[in-house]
Simulated scan of single mutants.
Amino acid sequence: MFVALTVVTAVAALLLAAWCGWAAYRDEPTKDWHFIGMAVVTVLALVQLVVGIVQLARGEDARQGTAIFVSYLVGAFLCVPAAGFMSLAERTRWGSVTVAAAGVVLAVLQVRLYDIWGG
């Protein structure tokens, strides 16, 4: 697994979580700028998904199993977009809380992906 990409994705997810958490603290819903941040984090997760699948296709193996690794990759990719859609439905501070929680979840998934790969 490409460790630098995992670290960058986790840090970006935590920054998004802090940013949306600050918006929730100020009683604000998610705004266009938050969605741009979500898009950046989602692109990082997509790049990670592609890199992970390419490495598996090359014959490299995840230490704890390929199926669980791919499941975590897909879950990490879908985490922030799902929260973004939920925040569109909830146009209060709780939409921001949802995205902040998704950022934290994505960071935790990055740590778990690192462990599954054999880090």
Rank of each mutant, 00 (worst) to 15 (best):
M1D: 11
V3P: 09
A4C: 06
A10P: 04
A13G: 12
A13F: 10
L14I: 02
L15N: 06
L15K: 09
A18W: 02
W19K: 04
W19N: 03
W19F: 08
C20W: 00
W22D: 10
A23G: 05
Y25D: 03
Y25W: 09
R26M: 13
R26W: 09
D27W: 13
E28I: 01
E28S: 06
T30N: 11
K31E: 07
K31D: 08
D32I: 10
W33R: 12
H34S: 07
I36M: 06
G37K: 04
M38G: 12
M38C: 07
V43K: 14
L44K: 04
A45I: 05
A45G: 02
A45P: 07
L49H: 12
V51M: 06
V51A: 02
I53R: 14
I53M: 13
V54S: 15
V54D: 14
V54I: 11
Q55S: 12
Q55P: 00
Q55K: 07
A57L: 15
R58G: 02
D61F: 06
R63S: 08
Q64S: 14
T66G: 08
A67F: 11
I68R: 14
F69M: 05
F69R: 03
V70E: 07
V70S: 10
L73H: 07
L73F: 06
L73D: 11
V74Q: 08
G75W: 11
A76L: 04
A76H: 01
F77K: 00
V80R: 04
V80C: 03
P81M: 11
P81F: 12
A82H: 04
G84E: 00
F85N: 13
F85M: 10
M86E: 15
M86A: 14
S87H: 05
S87N: 03
L88K: 07
A89K: 10
A89H: 09
R93P: 00
W94R: 12
G95P: 07
V97W: 02
V97N: 01
V97T: 14
T98V: 11
V105T: 07
L106C: 15
V108R: 10
L109M: 15
L109E: 09
V111I: 07
R112F: 07
Y114C: 15
I116H: 11
W117S: 03
G119E: 06
